[in-house]
Amino acid sequence: MEEITLREIIDYARINEENSKRFYLEAAEKSSVDNVRAYLQHLAKEEQKHIDHLNELEKKVEKGGKIPKSQGVAKPLGYADYVGSVRLDETASYQDVLRAAMAKEKEAFESYKKYAALSDDPKARKLFLLLADEESRHLRGFEEKYDDFMREIEHN
Protein backbone atom coordinates (compact mmCIF):
# COMPACT_ATOMS: atom_id res chain seq x y z
CA MET A 1 0.00 0.00 0.00
CA GLU A 2 1.20 3.49 -0.75
CA GLU A 3 2.38 5.41 2.18
CA ILE A 4 -0.43 7.13 3.91
CA THR A 5 -0.25 9.51 6.80
CA LEU A 6 -2.18 8.94 10.00
CA ARG A 7 -4.06 12.15 9.38
CA GLU A 8 -5.13 10.90 5.99
CA ILE A 9 -6.43 7.71 7.55
CA ILE A 10 -8.43 9.67 10.06
CA ASP A 11 -9.70 11.92 7.35
CA TYR A 12 -10.81 8.89 5.35
CA ALA A 13 -12.60 7.50 8.41
CA ARG A 14 -14.26 10.86 8.97
CA ILE A 15 -15.55 10.93 5.40
CA ASN A 16 -17.03 7.48 5.99
CA GLU A 17 -18.80 8.63 9.11
CA GLU A 18 -20.02 11.78 7.44
CA ASN A 19 -21.41 9.72 4.59
CA SER A 20 -23.21 7.51 7.06
CA LYS A 21 -24.61 10.52 8.83
CA ARG A 22 -25.88 11.92 5.57
CA PHE A 23 -27.31 8.51 4.67
CA TYR A 24 -29.37 8.41 7.87
CA LEU A 25 -30.49 12.00 7.56
CA GLU A 26 -31.62 11.45 3.98
CA ALA A 27 -33.48 8.33 4.99
CA ALA A 28 -35.08 10.25 7.87
CA GLU A 29 -36.17 12.90 5.41
CA LYS A 30 -37.95 10.25 3.32
CA SER A 31 -39.51 8.31 6.17
CA SER A 32 -43.23 8.65 6.69
CA VAL A 33 -43.25 6.88 10.05
CA ASP A 34 -42.61 9.36 12.89
CA ASN A 35 -40.83 6.98 15.20
CA VAL A 36 -38.67 5.43 12.51
CA ARG A 37 -37.70 8.94 11.42
CA ALA A 38 -36.76 9.77 15.00
CA TYR A 39 -34.64 6.65 15.19
CA LEU A 40 -32.85 7.53 11.96
CA GLN A 41 -32.16 11.00 13.34
CA HIS A 42 -30.79 9.38 16.47
CA LEU A 43 -28.47 7.24 14.35
CA ALA A 44 -27.29 10.36 12.52
CA LYS A 45 -26.44 11.87 15.91
CA GLU A 46 -24.50 8.74 16.81
CA GLU A 47 -22.49 9.17 13.64
CA GLN A 48 -21.78 12.77 14.66
CA LYS A 49 -20.38 11.42 17.92
CA HIS A 50 -18.08 9.20 15.93
CA ILE A 51 -16.97 12.23 13.93
CA ASP A 52 -16.27 14.16 17.14
CA HIS A 53 -14.33 11.20 18.42
CA LEU A 54 -12.23 11.13 15.27
CA ASN A 55 -11.56 14.85 15.61
CA GLU A 56 -10.15 14.26 19.06
CA LEU A 57 -8.10 11.36 17.85
CA GLU A 58 -6.73 13.59 15.11
CA LYS A 59 -5.65 16.22 17.61
CA LYS A 60 -3.96 13.59 19.67
CA VAL A 61 -2.10 12.18 16.70
CA GLU A 62 -1.12 15.67 15.52
CA LYS A 63 0.49 16.37 18.83
CA GLY A 64 2.52 13.22 18.33
CA GLY A 65 0.58 11.32 20.94
CA LYS A 66 0.28 7.59 20.92
CA ILE A 67 -2.46 5.77 19.10
CA PRO A 68 -4.87 4.64 21.82
CA LYS A 69 -5.06 0.98 22.66
CA SER A 70 -7.92 -0.90 21.06
CA GLN A 71 -10.64 -2.33 23.25
CA GLY A 72 -10.55 -5.43 21.12
CA VAL A 73 -12.68 -6.78 18.36
CA ALA A 74 -16.29 -7.71 19.06
CA LYS A 75 -17.33 -11.04 17.66
CA PRO A 76 -20.18 -10.60 15.18
CA LEU A 77 -23.37 -12.64 15.58
CA GLY A 78 -23.41 -13.41 11.89
CA TYR A 79 -26.60 -11.62 10.81
CA ALA A 80 -24.76 -9.12 8.65
CA ASP A 81 -23.16 -11.98 6.71
CA TYR A 82 -26.40 -13.20 5.26
CA VAL A 83 -29.17 -10.71 5.91
CA GLY A 84 -29.06 -8.38 2.95
CA SER A 85 -29.30 -4.60 3.06
CA VAL A 86 -32.31 -2.76 1.73
CA ARG A 87 -32.94 0.66 0.33
CA LEU A 88 -34.60 2.90 2.88
CA ASP A 89 -37.71 4.38 1.31
CA GLU A 90 -40.65 6.19 2.84
CA THR A 91 -42.14 3.01 4.29
CA ALA A 92 -38.84 1.65 5.65
CA SER A 93 -39.36 -0.24 8.89
CA TYR A 94 -37.21 -0.46 11.99
CA GLN A 95 -36.01 -3.84 10.72
CA ASP A 96 -35.06 -2.29 7.37
CA VAL A 97 -33.08 0.41 9.15
CA LEU A 98 -31.18 -2.17 11.18
CA ARG A 99 -30.47 -4.18 8.04
CA ALA A 100 -29.06 -1.14 6.29
CA ALA A 101 -27.06 -0.17 9.39
CA MET A 102 -25.57 -3.65 9.81
CA ALA A 103 -24.49 -3.67 6.19
CA LYS A 104 -22.84 -0.26 6.55
CA GLU A 105 -20.95 -1.20 9.69
CA LYS A 106 -19.84 -4.49 8.23
CA GLU A 107 -18.53 -2.79 5.13
CA ALA A 108 -16.57 -0.29 7.19
CA PHE A 109 -15.23 -2.97 9.52
CA GLU A 110 -14.04 -5.09 6.62
CA SER A 111 -12.46 -2.27 4.71
CA TYR A 112 -10.41 -1.10 7.72
CA LYS A 113 -9.34 -4.66 8.38
CA LYS A 114 -8.22 -5.02 4.79
CA TYR A 115 -6.31 -1.74 4.87
CA ALA A 116 -4.64 -2.79 8.10
CA ALA A 117 -3.45 -5.97 6.45
CA LEU A 118 -2.18 -3.97 3.49
CA SER A 119 -0.32 -1.40 5.60
CA ASP A 120 3.45 -1.70 5.94
CA ASP A 121 3.72 1.12 8.44
CA PRO A 122 3.07 -0.37 11.89
CA LYS A 123 1.50 2.87 13.09
CA ALA A 124 -0.92 2.98 10.17
CA ARG A 125 -1.74 -0.65 10.71
CA LYS A 126 -2.43 -0.02 14.37
CA LEU A 127 -4.69 2.90 13.55
CA PHE A 128 -6.65 0.93 10.95
CA LEU A 129 -7.05 -1.92 13.42
CA LEU A 130 -8.26 0.50 16.05
CA LEU A 131 -10.86 1.82 13.61
CA ALA A 132 -11.81 -1.71 12.55
CA ASP A 133 -12.30 -2.76 16.16
CA GLU A 134 -14.52 0.23 16.77
CA GLU A 135 -16.61 -0.64 13.76
CA SER A 136 -16.85 -4.24 14.97
CA ARG A 137 -18.44 -2.98 18.15
CA HIS A 138 -20.91 -0.87 16.22
CA LEU A 139 -21.71 -3.85 14.04
CA ARG A 140 -22.19 -6.06 17.06
CA GLY A 141 -24.39 -3.38 18.62
CA PHE A 142 -26.70 -3.35 15.61
CA GLU A 143 -26.66 -7.12 15.40
CA GLU A 144 -27.72 -7.32 19.02
CA LYS A 145 -30.54 -4.88 18.36
CA TYR A 146 -31.55 -6.99 15.40
CA ASP A 147 -31.31 -10.15 17.49
CA ASP A 148 -33.44 -8.58 20.22
CA PHE A 149 -35.96 -7.52 17.64
CA MET A 150 -36.09 -10.98 16.10
CA ARG A 151 -36.70 -12.43 19.54
CA GLU A 152 -39.35 -9.88 20.24
CA ILE A 153 -41.35 -10.57 17.11
CA GLU A 154 -41.11 -14.33 17.51
CA HIS A 155 -44.41 -16.12 17.46
CA ASN A 156 -45.42 -17.53 20.77
Binding site: V33, D34, N35, T91, S93, Q95, F149, I153
Partner: peptide
Protein backbone atom coordinates in the same frame (compact mmCIF):
# COMPACT_ATOMS: atom_id res chain seq x y z
CA UNK B 1 -40.20 -16.00 12.56
CA UNK B 2 -42.96 -13.61 13.53
CA UNK B 3 -45.30 -10.91 12.31
CA UNK B 4 -45.33 -7.15 12.23
CA UNK B 5 -48.15 -4.71 12.09
CA UNK B 6 -50.27 -4.33 9.00
CA UNK B 7 -49.68 -0.93 7.33
CA UNK B 8 -53.24 -0.78 6.06
CA UNK B 9 -54.85 1.10 8.93
CA UNK B 10 -52.05 3.62 9.26
CA UNK B 11 -52.39 4.48 5.56
CA UNK B 12 -55.91 5.80 6.11
CA UNK B 13 -56.04 6.86 9.76
CA UNK B 14 -54.45 10.25 10.28
CA UNK B 15 -53.47 10.91 13.87
CA UNK B 16 -52.99 7.26 14.79
CA UNK B 17 -49.51 7.13 16.31
CA UNK B 18 -47.14 4.35 15.36
CA UNK B 19 -44.17 3.07 17.37
CA UNK B 20 -40.69 2.67 16.00
CA UNK B 21 -41.31 -1.03 15.62
CA UNK B 22 -44.50 -0.40 13.69
Amino acid sequence: IGTSSNPLLFQTTPGLGQTKKG
